[in-house]
Amino acid sequence: MAVYRRSTRTRYVLAVLVLAALTLVTIDARSNGSGVTSEIRGKVHDVFSPVQRATHSALQPVGNFLTGALDYGSLRQENQRLRDQVIALQNQSAQSTAEQAAADQVLRQQGLPWVGAIPTRTVQIIDNGSSNFENTVTINKGTTSGLAKGQPVVAAGGLVGTVASAGSRTAVVTLITDPTFSVGVRLDAKNIGYAQGFGRNDPLRVSVITTNAAVPTLKKGQVLLTSGLDSELYPPNIPVGKVVDASRAPGSVEPDITLQPLVDLNELTYLQVLLWAPQ
């Protein structure tokens, strides 16, 4: 009898929790990323950010050790290459402190030619994201620094992503490899397309927007830039990626174009957020 009562209670609890979860999903899906649930997420990021930063700093040596241990195979090859580099570098006067490297990274991002007159904010990544289904990073500035949802994020090489949500002191950036990310790119003088992310470590795929113009011919290694058309979400001429492949499948009219991001998304520390809104 006791087991029966317990079992009934378990079913009741499970039903209530499932309903609560479904209610949250419905509210969040209906608010479309701008309702009370996204506000809660932003607030939680703000509250957590100091603790997150402290935990990240405290556990960084462990993280570095784990990264090294898990990449042992590739590290051996890289080790040889680095030994050669070290010999060359010993002949130069190198003040390679961590602060110097960080300052260099920030300086490299100042005066990026394709940013033009758009005002920017320099931000630092405080969380690299641990989800296996979304490629995001959390940065240390939010709405109080002028950041807003939808603003483009760049680094020295080119486009990095877009601000997905902004709390008052932190914001989440969706990287260009995330499957939800897409950006218009100019293929040649007459053709445009859009590049879409397909997951971490995978290249972006470009879909050609069909027009009456001749099919674009792209060369391997060619850099594609944002198209910047009217109502486009990104300003024009920001480098997006390098063409890895632009071959045409038999029987296909349009080429299968894949792009490698110009920025190494695994080695990001500082970023520039463009305080820009679609025109």
Partner: peptide, 9 residues
């Protein structure tokens, strides 16, 4: 709470 592209819940 730490995700952005999937709905809360």
């Amino acid at each position: 709470l730490f995700l952005t592209s999937t709905p809360l819940g």
